[in-house]
Design a binder for these strands. Sequence first.
DNA 1: CTGTGACTGGTACATTTGTCCCAATCGGAC
DNA 2: GTCCGATTGGGACAAATGTACCAGTCACAG
Lengths: 205, 205
Amino acid sequence: MGQRHGAMSDRREELVEATLRVIGRSGVDAVTHRAVAAEAGVPLAATTYYFGSKDELVCEALALVIDRSMELVTRFARVDGEIDCAQLVDRLTEFAEAQLDDQRAPLIAQFELMLEGARRSRLRPLAERWSAAYLEGLTALVGASTLPDPAPAAQLLSTLIEGALLDQLSLPRHDFVEMELRPMLTRAVRAMAAPTGRAAATSSE
Amino acid sequence: MGQRHGAMSDRREELVEATLRVIGRSGVDAVTHRAVAAEAGVPLAATTYYFGSKDELVCEALALVIDRSMELVTRFARVDGEIDCAQLVDRLTEFAEAQLDDQRAPLIAQFELMLEGARRSRLRPLAERWSAAYLEGLTALVGASTLPDPAPAAQLLSTLIEGALLDQLSLPRHDFVEMELRPMLTRAVRAMAAPTGRAAATSSE
DNA sequence: CTGTGACTGGTACATTTGTCCCAATCGGAC
DNA sequence: GTCCGATTGGGACAAATGTACCAGTCACAG
């Protein structure tokens, strides 16, 4: 027997991958049954055979993207012992770099997902899960460093990396990592490492 | 005579505004001649009369958005004399808050523009102009403060605000401004106000 | 007045889209 | 071998879409 298209199928996977490629190249609105089928090299009907609707296909593709992203976060959040600030900067830089290298498709898909999450309730849980995992991973990483107050520091660094990735995606620069990303992370980490005196503490906390 | 749809026309403007509303509510791919015409309350043909193509309409709407955004930046970058760190934080918070309040449409449109700029050469110059103005405005604002090294600080703060706005757009929280944004900006500014590695700073200039 | 040109509004049409249908094929159970 | 369900591949169809067309209106110049 076959496998009632429940989980694994070469064609199913291939279609999801093709969808991701289309999203990366031309955006979510360029995702059509025909475009995906052509990209995957399968007949048109395969898209409706394996997926009940276009929505299902897009959702599954985005789910795959965030799965991979979460896996990446987990991988970079794993450290041996304690690390110093320089090592933290290295780690963060590598982490951001890895997201850029992969090809831009997954990253573009992530941001498109965030924007879609702003309105489509169907994708909202996905966006939430990803955001939480992202922050959690970074918190763990920062927690392994010598920085005080890992939680707010992780949130700041997470937001910073997010913004930087979006910038680089939008207006790519060849020397972005070494000339912008690393200095910015260095600055942020080093500044936060300095004991700024608890007298003028923020109102929160 | 009329005005050869060159610059001003009630209907033209109304169509652009309607396009913005559609983008904010349902995304750029939801922009169709019919949707825009219905939103504006004008017959379908008006869209093709005033705009050569759908692309032209979308581009003009995005251009309007970034024009307003640049105006906002300029407004917030204008300060009287020198300001201290607390005032800088206030100013930055207000700036970010203003972008969120406006309705979400312009902000969504901005981010969609950035993603589109990642591939469509037609919109690239627009994205570049906006990015440059954004950074320039923040640099001026930071320059009016007591922070050392205004340029890199402005870049960091710009990236941080961008990421924070995207976060809040994607996963809105009711107490975002006071519970997340302000503490994060406070932290970033205070940390950067500290001397990079030397002894206690004379934070006046 | 008459005309002329911008503007309006309704509609038509070809293309693209999502989705559905059906005949052919393949691989294993009997 | 036969049979049966999963899969394939090609086409068909209605709806939505971008765009073009055209008859009518209105303001103003002559």
